[in-house]
Design a protein around this nucleic acid. Structure first.
Lengths: 208, 208
DNA sequence: GTTTAAATTAAACAATTGTTTAACTTTGTG
DNA sequence: CACAAAGTTAAACAATTGTTTAATTTAAAC
């Protein structure tokens, strides 16, 4: 991929995450990427196609990792859940800008193409996690739970935390600029909480 | 409140929920409310102040109900949690448009005033639920959990479900237009799931 | 009924938007 | 070098935006 093209995508990601799709003008992106305004139409066709390109560029990023995890026979179901949580949390915090776009900005988009891409990402996530849960149930390790809503709780918890950054800065008493400390404190807490939550929830016969 | 003022607020709520703040023009709102364009500036001052008025108008709507619940001495901690979940889920599905604005459109706003109002709403929710959990812990009914993240799981699950409407229509095999059926199927499922999830998570000594 | 304030209107305003154009460099190829 | 394609540019385009103005109508008070 051309240097300039990649540069535009990077700038778009930064600005979309920060100010949203509508809140970011093509001129903003061009300015941030230090390219001429017309180059964006030239490379991507339109602002919306630029966003679609960005999604496509990023979405395939970690695809496959979870597939492997689901197949892995050397792990117990609970170990798989723990590893899944580690993977998801790390993935999301490592791609926090893109995750911010997906969770807070894409849902507001009107475009059917974008909506379709979103639905696909969510559906894929859902199916992967479902496989792990079903496997645990077959092995009589997990009890009966609502699969879809269990996945919603996992994803929802992470999304809730990442989209309420300001709130958690306040709760943990961290200065706004100190993102490193924030992550260092929050990530282990979040992982522990999710593992504990799911361990209790998925345990076979946990409600006597 | 003047008829016209209320009418504008209603229209704004509908359109903001559907198309977002940036996606809705002042002319759209005026057209939908059947009032002259200038009336919006006349009544509210600006588009952004209109949004602030809407938030203020709606936010106080159910405030107080949860306060009462927290104080109620006749309920066991788990009964309180169950009732809290019923309250929240019902409240959110009954005000789905406003909830949609709060969860998917407000987080994208740049305005500091709006951000402040959002943070206040979240903080209030957090504090109310915390009270109930702490009470249950004092009575040795609930175990030790991360309070903030437990709340994040409750709110996050609900938000995840409501913001992925299209996905759940697909999962439950419901025609897109049949919202009544969708609610009738989803709401009980969601309530049951959350109660089960929290019962397992909060139980004292659930991890042996 | 006259006067004063509130309500309402159509029109204009200035700014910004995404996109296109047409001219120009640059680059690579024969 | 010559020539064609790709890359790059400043400028213009048409459309839409939120807000304001100045004029007019309605309502209320005296």
């Amino acid at each position: 991929m051309s240097d300039k093209r990649a540069h535009i995508l990077d700038s778009a990601e930064i600005l979309f995450a920060e100010k949203g799709f509508d809140g970011t003008s093509v001129r903003d992106i061009a300015g941030h990427a230090n390219v001429n305004l017309a180059m964006i139409s030239y490379y991507f066709g339109s602002k919306e196609k630029l966003l679609a390109s960005l999604i496509e560029h990023r979405a395939g990023y970690t695809r496959g990792i979870i597939e492997e995890l689901a197949k892995d026979e050397s792990l117990t179901p609970f170990e798989k859940i723990d590893k899944l949580i580690d993977l998801y949390v790390d993935k999301i915090f490592n791609n926090s800008r893109f995750h911010c776009i997906v969770t807070t900005h894409l849902p507001t988009m009107q475009s059917d193409e974008i909506k379709g891409m979103m639905a696909d990402i969510k559906f894929m996530n859902l199916e992967q996690i479902k496989k792990i849960i079903i496997d645990g149930q077959k092995k009589k390790v997990f009890g009966k739970v609502d699969m879809e809503l269990t996945v919603a709780s996992i994803m929802g918890t992470i999304t809730q935390v990442t989209s309420s950054k300001a709130l958690y800065y306040r709760i943990f008493n961290i200065e706004k600029s100190n993102e490193e400390l924030y992550n260092k404190k929050l990530i282990p807490k979040l992982k522990t909480h999710l593992k504990q939550l799911l361990r209790a929830h998925l345990s076979f016969n946990h409600h006597e």
